[in-house]
């Protein structure tokens, strides 16, 4: 966790959303995304602030804080930030590193092109979003 992975492509290939890609495709993505490290308790996304990004968790744990309460916890392979980017709105929650957190980051402005260039990743993300929506609906019901 302390040291950056020697080969980020290997790490990416092990994540569900990149599972359908060939090695050259994974390498291209590894070169497109930037790795970030967040210390425990550091804020990653800030509620109400514009210009955010899309994050994929490589290692560690992130807390979703809304209305001052922890409403969810995200871990390896999960992602966040895409909703505010796709809707062109500021995030509606804070995301805070619950433990030291290592993420890959794509600036919001590049997300549309990224999804269009990588339709199989787009499909995997869509499935994950559908699952989140189904769970939320179940909880609501």
């Amino acid at each position: 966790m302390r040291s950056a992975p020697d080969d980020i492509s290997e790490t990416l290939a092990g994540l569900a959303i990149f599972a359908d890609l060939s090695r050259p495709e994974v390498e291209r993505i590894a070169h497109t995304l930037e790795e970030r490290y967040f210390a425990q308790d550091e804020r990653v996304l800030r509620e109400g602030l514009s210009g955010s990004a899309f994050y994929i968790i490589l290692d560690g744990e992130a807390a979703v804080i809304a209305g001052g309460k922890r409403v969810n916890t995200l871990g390896r392979g999960e992602f966040f930030g895409e909703i505010s980017v796709l809707l062109g709105e500021a995030p509606v929650a804070d995301i805070v590193a619950a433990r030291p957190l290592r993420c890959l980051v794509l600036p919001g402005e590049l997300l549309k092109e990224f999804l269009q260039t990588n339709p199989r990743v787009c499909y995997r993300i869509l499935v994950a979003e559908a699952r989140k929506l189904a769970n939320a609906t179940r909880r609501g019901g």
């Binding site: 966790m1 302390r2 040291s3 950056a4 980020i8 930037e34 790795e35 970030r36 490290y37 967040f38 210390a39 550091e42 030291p100 290592r102």
Partner: peptide
């Protein structure tokens, strides 16, 4: 000594005041 690194070229991860993040 525990200094975390980040990115392809493994630079030390830092706080906003350029202190080691770990």
């Amino acid at each position: 000594l525990g200094v975390a690194t980040v990115g392809r070229n493994k630079l030390p991860a830092q706080t906003p005041f350029w202190e080691s993040a770990s």
